[in-house]
Design a protein around this nucleic acid. Structure first.
Length: 200
DNA sequence: TGCCTGATTGCCT
DNA sequence: GGCAATCAGGCAA
């Protein structure tokens, strides 16, 4: 089936629903003139209320302002002095919710990913939020980019049916989020069951 | 102005 | 399993 970007309505559902629904979709980067695609296998939801781990917990700032854009935009932030992470903005404009994409299964352009990552093992290319950002050449400059348009798009589950079939019903597990200290009790992490490409 | 911490990764033991 | 790398944002003073 032809590659189609996810429609705006896809992102306008509750954030946890979007986080779950993103599993099995495809993230495509044509940055640097090289096409790379990965299947989303792990996500985490970050909410605007009752979530002390969310960057939006204290309202808009210069760093997190993209999180308050309309659903379907990218929120890219810099952390730990050396890494970037990629999020999909969800919810109504001005609310401040997003889904962190934590891991991808390489589908196309694995060699380009290897060169960018400086590692050979397929498992090490996109099995972490900062890894996939490096593999797809995503930068802070893409903060606020609309994910319906190149060079960075999210494509429907129907895409790449030659490799993954229709993917109608995928088994998705929910659990606690990783790498946070607050609101660790919330089950806002979603993984494709059985995938060897998740971060942990 | 200064200090502390973080939605991470990779190397070392 | 432990921990260093490395810096911008957030907050206290």
């Amino acid at each position: 089936m032809k590659c189609r970007p996810l429609p705006r309505e896809f992102f306008e559902r509750p954030t946890t629903a979007v986080a779950r629904a993103l599993i099995g979709t495809f993230l495509e980067s044509t940055l640097g003139g090289r096409r790379c695609v990965g299947r989303v296998v792990e996500t985490e939801a970050y909410l605007s209320r009752g979530d002390e781990a969310s960057h939006s917990r204290s309202g808009p700032t210069a760093r997190n302002r993209s999180m308050f854009l309309a659903a379907g935009h990218a929120y890219v932030y810099f952390t730990y002095g050396m890494h970037h992470c990629f999020n999909v903005v969800t919810g109504p404009e001005g609310v401040g919710e997003a889904v962190l994409v934590r891991a991808l299964e390489p589908v196309l352009g694995a060699d380009v990913m290897r060169a960018r990552r400086g590692r050979d093992a397929e498992r090490d290319l996109c099995s972490g939020p900062a890894k996939l950002v490096q593999a797809l050449a995503i930068e802070r400059a893409h903060d606020g980019h609309s994910l319906a348009s190149r060079p960075l798009r999210l494509l429907t589950r129907d895409s790449f049916a030659e490799s993954f079939g229709a993917q109608r019903r995928l088994a998705v597990d929910a659990g606690a989020r990783i790498g946070i200290r607050r609101s660790t009790e919330l089950p806002l992490r979603f993984c494709l069951r059985g995938s060897r490409f998740v971060s942990r």
